[in-house]
Design a protein around this nucleic acid. Structure first.
Lengths: 195, 195
DNA sequence: GTCTATAATAAGATAGAC
DNA sequence: GTCTATCTTATTATAGAC
C-alpha cells in the first residue's frame, strides 16, 4: 500500500480511537493496531502523535461541514434550516464518534490555547470557521439565524455528551431542534427541557 | 491540618490542574505538588485519581450555579437574564479555569458514557441539572428563555475554548450575550459573527 | 496525618535491518 | 514500505515506617 493510502487509513483509525479516548487517553499503539501496522511505523507517516490528532480532527470538522452542505443542496432556502438541523441530528445519532471527537477537539484545543500554544488549534479554527461560513451562506446569510443554529447545536452536543437521555420527556424539546429543526420559537411548553 | 481541610485543598488544586491538563493529561504528582504533600498521600484522602477528578468537577459546576444565583439575587425578574449573562461573562473572563474545567468535564464524561460507564457522570449530571433548574427558576421558568440562555452559553464556551479572539469584530456579537445579555434578537448586523 | 521506597507497567519516539 | 528491538521517561497505586 502506498504511503498516501496508509496515511488515509491512519486518519480514519485515529478519528475512531481519539474520539473514544481523547488525545492523552489514546495510545499510538492502539491506532497502529487498528490500522494493522506496527506502532513505530506511524512515525514514518506522521512526525508525531500530535500531527495524527490534528489530521483526524480536521477530517472530523470537514465531515460535519460537508453534512450541512449536502443537506442544503438543491433545497429551497426556506427548507434548509430544518434540513441541516435534521442532518446534524442524524449525524450524531448514526455516527456518535463524530460528536465524541468534536468534544475531544474542543478540550484539546482549549488545553493548548491555555498553555499558550496557538499553533495547535490554528488549522482547526480555520476548518471550524469554514463550517460556520458554509452554514451561514446556506441559511441565507442571516446572522441571527446562523448564530442560533450553532448555539442550539452546541447545547445539544453538551447534553448528549453528558449522557442526558434522549428518551426523557424533558429532553425532547431540545432534541426536536436536531430532528425537526429550528430555534427557540419552536419550543412549546410540552417540549420543556430541564434538560 | 485535618483530613477534611486537606481534602478541600486537594479539590482546589485538582480543579486548577485538571482544568489545564484534562483528566488523562494531569498527573496526581502535579496535584500533590500544588497542595504541598507527597503524591502517595493523596490516596489516603481519596480512593483513586477518578474520585479526585469527580470532586473537582462537582465543585466547578456548583460554582457556576452559585454565580447564576448570586447574580439574580435581589434583582427584579426583568433584570435577571442580563445580570446572569453578565455574571457568566465575568466568570469565564476573570477565572478562565472554570471554563477550561467545564470543557474537560464534558470530554471526560462523554468518554466514560461512550465506554458504557454511566456511573462516572452521574453526580455531574445531577449538578448540571441543578444548575439548569436554578437558572430556570430565576429566569421566571420560561422554557424557551432558559433553553436559549444555555444554548448561547454553550456556543460562547466553544468559541472561547477554540481560541477565537474576543477582540475580533465578528466575535463581539456573541460576546455581547455574556456582557450585555440575552438571546438572538439582540444581535444586529454590526455584531455579525462568523464567528 | 504524613512520608519514603518501590512495584508495575505503559507510552512516545529512535535506530537500524530487510 | 515496513518491522523488531529498545531507550527513556512518566505514572498510578501499594506497603510500611514514623
Amino acid at each position: 500500500m502506498s504511503a498516501e493510502e496508509r496515511r488515509e487509513s491512519v486518519i480514519r483509525a485515529a478519528l475512531s480511537e481519539f474520539a473514544h479516548g481523547g488525545y492523552r487517553g489514546t495510545s499510538t499503539e492502539a491506532i497502529a493496531r487498528r490500522v494493522g501496522v506496527s506502532q513505530p511505523y506511524l512515525f514514518r507517516l506522521f512526525p508525531n502523535k500530535q500531527a495524527i490528532f490534528v489530521a483526524a480532527a480536521e477530517r472530523c470538522i470537514e465531515h460535519t461541514r460537508d453534512a450541512f452542505l449536502a443537506a442544503a443542496k438543491g433545497r429551497p432556502p426556506e427548507e434548509r434550516l430544518e434540513a441541516m438541523a435534521n442532518a446534524y441530528g442524524r449525524l450524531i445519532r448514526e455516527d456518535p464518534e463524530k460528536l465524541l471527537m468534536q468534544m475531544q477537539i474542543y478540550a484539546a484545543v482549549a488545553t493548548a490555547e491555555a498553555a499558550g500554544d496557538h499553533e495547535f488549534g490554528a488549522s482547526l479554527r480555520d476548518r471550524w470557521q469554514s463550517m460556520w461560513d458554509s452554514a451561514h451562506v446556506e441559511l441565507g446569510a442571516d446572522i441571527e439565524e446562523t448564530t442560533t443554529f450553532f448555539a442550539y447545536g452546541m447545547l445539544i452536543n453538551t447534553l448528549v455528551s453528558m449522557g442526558f437521555p434522549p428518551t426523557q420527556r424533558n429532553w425532547e424539546g431540545i432534541y426536536e431542534f436536531a430532528r425537526a429543526g429550528v430555534g427557540p420559537q419552536s419550543f412549546g411548553a410540552p417540549a420543556a427541557p430541564s434538560p
